[in-house]
């Protein structure tokens, strides 16, 4: 496989590519005070193909964030493996960026310093900080806000800073955990379109967690669906040509189909 092909968003392939991240049989239990042990992830399989935009769709509290945290290494699974190119991999072997539901910025640092925080944490040489900070702030449309404090930015702008921070460490795979769910719909739509531009231009792989079916259909190459029992019950392709339009009837139709399937599997 050539480098050019590797980075093609491959909605159709079935996870045999060498740069596909394969999660197999991931199990995670948590102790909950008063409820005993609860099963959050019940033998989950997931393939994140190189260069693809993958969504993980499920109702609130179904373990989507836990799965992200297993990939990122913030949580260790009880069972199961992560494999890539035929070898077992640990989170530390992967090149990952993370965009959380909240921006999680350091309010006492300027926008640029927030990005430098991540660069310092990743041991990026200081000589590269300026160039990277400028480049990625420019990319998210905040080229002029480097010296401003996050407390003076709107919610959408803060989330843009968080996106720039994740991009600045130049990861292969970006994990995004409902990053637009607390924004108003107009801001969220702008950000989704910009995210798709960045994804295409920078040739990143994105794993995107959401509970919004419309958002998942608009963004993704393929979608994994989870239920509240911690089971991954389906993987569905989207197969709609890009660039996509919000008012495309094909999106609405795919959304309806997936909703129906969700309804049968999740709502009893």
């Amino acid at each position: 496989m050539t480098a050019a092909e590797e980075n093609q968003p491959s909605a159709e392939s079935s996870g045999t590519s060498v740069d596909t991240l394969e999660l197999r049989n991931i199990v995670k239990r948590f102790e909950k005070p008063g409820q005993g042990e609860i099963l959050v992830l019940d033998g989950v399989d997931l393939d994140v193909e190189g260069g693809a935009f993958v969504s993980l769709l499920g109702p609130s509290g179904c373990g989507k964030t836990t799965l992200m945290n297993v990939i990122s290494g913030l949580v260790t699974q009880d069972q199961g493996t992560m494999r890539r190119g035929g070898r077992d991999v640990a989170p530390g072997d992967l090149s990952l960026g993370y965009i959380f539901q909240e921006p999680r910025l350091l309010n006492w640092k300027t926008v640029s310093e927030n990005i430098e925080f991540a660069l310092e944490a990743r041991d990026i040489p200081e000589s590269e900080w300026q160039e990277r900070t400028d480049r990625y702030l420019e990319m998210v449309g905040l080229g002029d806000e480097g010296d401003n404090y996050p407390t003076r930015l709107s919610g959408g702008m803060k989330q843009r800073v968080a996106i720039a921070r994740a991009l600045a460490i130049e990861p292969e795979i970006i994990l995004m955990d409902e990053p637009f769910s607390s924004l108003d719909e107009i801001t969220a739509r702008d950000l989704r379109e910009e995210l798709l531009d960045i994804w295409k231009q920078e040739e990143k792989t994105i794993l995107f967690v959401t509970h919004d079916i419309n958002e998942a259909v608009f963004l993704s190459d393929y979608i994994y669906m989870m239920n509240t029992q911690g089971e991954m019950f389906a993987r569905r392709n989207v197969n709609i040509d890009r660039p996509r339009q919000y008012d495309d009837p094909a999106i609405a139709q795919r959304e309806t189909e997936l909703y129906r399937e969700f309804h049968e599997n999740v709502v009893h």
């Binding site: 350091l106 640092k109 925080f117 310092e120 944490a121």
Partner: peptide
């Protein structure tokens, strides 16, 4: 949440103390 963010990006003890803990305790 901030502690988790710092952990994810791989901030060491000193960086976490200086940039995350102390400013919150100021």
């Amino acid at each position: 949440d901030l502690a988790e963010m710092a952990e994810f990006f791989g901030a060491g003890r000193i960086q976490t103390f200086k940039d995350i803990i102390v400013p919150q305790l100021a």
